[in-house]
Design a protein around this nucleic acid. Structure first.
Lengths: 140, 140
DNA sequence: TTGACAAACGCAACTGAGTTGCATTAATAT
DNA sequence: ATATTAATGCAACTCAGTTGCGTTTGTCAA
């Protein structure tokens, strides 16, 4: 029983197929300590002794986004990265030198700020993106 | 006396040239209520009755970034946008429908959070990016 | 188990933001 | 006025991501 089973089960209940590629891609995302790009995933497939077309990876990202299984992250380097949709609300910090990414949890969330903005700007806020940039222990 | 004069003066003091393109580009950035992309700027040049090569716009962005006259913003749509380096620390909210961007100022800044992260993660934090996404008054 | 059907896949060609090489133009110092 | 070199323009390029289309494969019903 792989860690991705319950997700695959959920997808199947919604009428989607259980393929080898989808299973492995989810496994790899689940066990990665860092968000992964399309290229990262192709490399991970390679290391697992398989291959996957980049088209498939991008389409799978789109599919899993639609199903809200993963979420997209943007670190400003024009490479989209993805992680399994987290239970705990967290953000990230990326080392601007070696690109290492770690999760960070704020002491206070941004809910009250969002309410204030919604009120002042008459925007209906749907989400936000907050990423920190700096130098990791090794790179400073 | 244009609004960009003091910036051009500052650049000149550092040994850089005062060109028509640089002057107009700064004028346009200064008077824009929203951050601008390279394409936005080319269009704005057009409306001013001039033209500019996209290469020039990108190189000018790089130059002005190096001189810390502007800063780069990322709203996750793989288009870099730029705004004059602000005095007041602010973030932005973008309408996911019509792409309208407005400035927002937090009630509490993220300094204490940054200190906490720096301590816990042993990162030296250099900066952060925080953008909100939602629907503006017209689009909801 | 088999056959049908559509979801999932792979390959090649494409898109579009941003970059690079190189020749030309023009701002500044002397 | 002239020399120097920063700034500019054009064309070709890069690279992450997308699209078209023909093929494979998971699923379901007979």
């Amino acid at each position: 029983m792989q860690a991705s089973s319950h997700i695959l089960k959920r997808l199947k209940e919604r009428g989607h197929r259980f393929t080898k590629t989808r299973g492995l891609l989810l496994e790899l995302l689940l066990k990665s300590p860092e968000p992964l790009s399309a290229l990262d995933l192709q490399k991970a497939f390679s290391r697992s002794g398989t291959t996957v077309a980049k088209t498939t990876v991008y389409r799978e990202f789109a599919f899993l986004m639609k199903e809200k299984v993963i979420r997209e992250l943007d670190f400003g380097d024009s490479i989209k990265r993805y992680e399994i949709m987290p239970d705990n609300h967290h953000h990230h910090i990326m080392c601007v030198n070696c690109r290492k990414i770690e999760e960070v949890v704020l002491e206070k969330d941004l809910d009250s700020e969002e309410k204030m903005i919604a009120k002042n700007k008459q925007f209906k806020i749907l989400n936000h993106s907050l990423e920190f940039f700096g130098l990791c222990a090794k790179c400073q």
